[in-house]
Design a protein around this nucleic acid. Sequence first.
DNA 1: CCCTGATTCGC
DNA 2: GCGAATCAGG
Length: 172
Amino acid sequence: MNWTDERVELLRKLWSEGLSASQIAAQLGGVSRNAVIGKVHRLKLSSRGRATAAPARQKKTTQATTATKTVQRTVTATRTVTASIGATALQAQFEVEPVARQYIRPVENVVVPISRRLQLVQLSERTCKWPNGDPLSEDFSFCGNEAGESGPYCGYHSKIAFQPASERRRSR
DNA sequence: CCCTGATTCGC
DNA sequence: GCGAATCAGG
C-alpha cells in the first residue's frame, strides 16, 4: 500500500480526531501502526495534546467519586465484586448489566463484569467479544474484558451465552 | 500482557 | 520516504 492523497488525508483527519495509531492503521488497512506513526512524524503532525501514554485506559479520581456513589446505591443487586477487575470496571458496570438482565436471569453467585466498552478494532484474541447495545448505534461497544483462551467471552458472558436450554427457558 | 507514541536506521 | 524494530511508558 502506498500513501495516496486520499489516504494521507484520512490519516490527518483521524489523527486529529484523536484516534490511536493502531486504530487508524486498522481503518486505513494495509498498514501497520508503525507505518502510521512513521507517516505522522514525517508529516510533522505529531503533537496532539497528549503525546505519550495510552488514553485507552484511564482510571482517575475524577470519576472515582461518582462510581462509588453508584455502587452504594446498587450494592443490593450486585453483591459479588471481584477485586481483580478493579476500579476501571466500576465506571461502566451499570451501563451493561441492565441490558443483560433484560433477557437473562442473572446466574447465581457469579461475578458481574465491568465492560471496557471497546470498539471493534480494539478487540484482540483475549478480549471478550460480547456486544453491548445496538450494533447500529453509535454507543455500540464490546465487553472487552479478559476472555482467556477458552472462548470468545469473559467468564460472566460465557455463562449467560452458553446457558443450558433448560435454564434459558426459565429465564424468560 | 495488553496497549500507547517516539525514535532509529536499513532499505 | 517508508516502516520494522526497538525503546519508553501506562
